[in-house]
Design a protein around this nucleic acid. Structure first.
Lengths: 338, 338
DNA sequence: CTGTTAGCGCCTTCAT
DNA sequence: ATGAAGGCGCTAACAG
């Protein structure tokens, strides 16, 4: 930088200002600086800038997974938006499972490394949220609501209600639920909210709702398959199932096949997401645009970092996409021997 | 840090050494330092450390996508391995398409920001490779070979040959190919290599191989569907297709459905990857373990960063997994009216 | 609009 | 095994 200043015949402070586009630099000075920069192939040192300014131009992206559909989409949207604003995305994968540790991440690892945080699809425990807040960065949540913080999410309750309504309208009377975990008692998690919606819609129609109709699918394909076996084994009278994610719904499709059940003749299945593979498997779903939500979350954080006023919460809609996995229940039930 | 030094009754240099586990620090001194650190909740500043040492403890992960199966798996493996070694992963999404720009990324953005680079699944152009090398970091490639650099990959030629052999052994005589792009002339790209394997196997069996049997699927679901229409429209006599990725193969399944073709009766399809959804859709594939390859790539880079001796290249195997998308061609061809 | 001057917080010789 | 001191490269007041 000193070389650039010398070549341009100015001070390093002016070089700094010119390069950062600050006001109070004459156009000709700026041009001379830029010429010198080009001449010398000068590239500023990010660590020196961080040390001096306290800003890192980096955002931490906390996520339990990157290879699942929703997460991949969201992260892609976040990264593109951040990149366009010349910020870097630091990827932090958290333990997706609760262990003996009270926190699923190490707050110290984030210390002074980022300017802000985006928490993807992770319903943080109150303790974890506290630890994150102690870091002092702006925080934006996506997927799960983040109490006290800006976040981007679906209207999970309505989404679930509409999915269940679709099944009920087709004539289904015994409608099961595949959730993340039935122990999920974090009120702001999608699993919790979608269960609330499932139950609310059933109750409003005076249909059975209860623990006996629920099964844990952990939001994964294999989890959904397992949950399908559990649920259909316990309640062979179920004719329709609302799965809180498409991946679990796909697992349920596998379980149905394992059990010799035809979809949709013997079992109707509806998921949530709008997974790329839905069209191939014919899955009916409540589709969302996850990539766009990722972009929105990143923009929310950019606003916060810039001190710009911004919305606190952004709720995205879902669209019912009917395919071949849902239909009216057949009148005469096919005998089922598990 | 000065506070810690004072509290521990040592100099800042000793604190630095103790914290980094350097030799030449007595056990008791170290303990006193650690006690002071705990007492004061001291966390070192990464930017100060980077500025002083020149090392960032950060690795750049260059990738065109994060939401596609292979990439998500690989990135997950990389991040976990890096994290375990206390390194951070900076995610850089490159333009996946070639544009007017000679480079699909900005080398300056990487300047002094990372200690090393992992290039995921991106067959870099020679110019791009040069630009990356000029940065002066160790580079590890994964997915595509990286000339002059360590890399992790599949034996693409053998994989393709075995896939085609599977079809040929079933009795197929006219076997199409869905590649990334037929213009792909980068010899170290998976698309190129898999095409070489497809052709080699066909030639060895004196079966037809040629441009007329190829179509561009861009390694995506929709691209595969489009390519399927193009290929099957041009060559209705094709009874088997090797798709260079499962996502394209899934797209081909859609195209077949569009055209009223039954799989596998009218058309056999085999892909490459071992995508999670293969079991749901019944896709026969050459399966690989992408997450493990991601871990291996990260370990390779860790070795390079530590100056440890390490292998230059690691080739992973694929396994033929036969499902319901491949079968012997039916003797009497069903009439096809597109 | 531009220059001067202190740091930012740590690492790294070089001594001891 | 430990301490002293310089410097990594930039930003941020404060002058002018």
């Amino acid at each position: 930088m000193a070389d650039v200043a010398r070549l341009a015949g100015v001070s390093t402070a002016t070089v700094s200002r010119a390069l950062r586009g600050l006001p109070n630099v004459s156009a000709q000075t700026r041009d001379r600086v830029l010429a010198a920069v080009a001449e010398l192939d000068y590239v500023p040192s990010p660590s020196a800038a961080s040390l001096a300014s306290g800003r890192t131009r980096t955002v931490g992206v906390l996520t339990p997974w990157v290879s699942r559909w929703y997460f991949g989409q969201v992260i892609e949207g976040i990264e593109r938006t951040l990149h366009a604003a010349h910020l870097d995305a630091l990827l932090y994968q958290l333990d997706s499972e609760r262990s003996a540790e009270p926190l699923r991440f190490d707050p110290a690892a984030l210390h002074r490394r980022v300017d802000g945080l985006i928490v993807v699809g992770l319903p943080l425990e109150p303790l974890e949220l506290d630890a994150l807040e102690d870091l002092g960065y702006p925080i934006v949540g996506i997927g799960a609501a983040a109490p006290r913080h800006a976040h981007v999410r679906l209207d999970d309750v309505t989404t679930a209600r509409r999915a269940v309504a679709h099944l009920a309208d087709l004539g289904h009377r015994t409608i099961g639920l595949l959730t993340g975990s039935r122990d999920d008692d974090i009120a702001w998690s999608p699993g919790f909210q979608r269960r609330v919606g499932w139950r609310a819609e059933l109750d409003s129609r005076a249909l059975e709702s209860g623990v006996g109709l629920e099964a844990d699918g952990g939001f994964s394909l294999l989890g959904g398959r397992h949950a399908g076996h559990v649920l259909l084994g316990r309640r062979p009278d179920v004719t329709g199932v609302f799965a809180a994610s498409d991946e679990m719904a796909m697992g349920l499709l596998l379980a149905a096949r394992d059990l010799g059940l035809r979809v949709p003749e013997d079992l109707s299945v509806i998921g949530v997401d709008g997974h790329e593979m839905d069209e191939v498997t014919g899955l009916t779903t409540m589709a969302q645009n996850a990539q766009e939500q990722g972009e929105a979350a990143a923009r929310l954080l950019l606003d916060l970092l810039a001190g710009r006023p911004s919305e606190a919460t952004r709720v995205y809609p879902t669209t019912l996409v009917v395919r071949t996995s849902t239909a009216a229940p057949t009148v005469k039930a096919v005998p089922r021997t598990p």
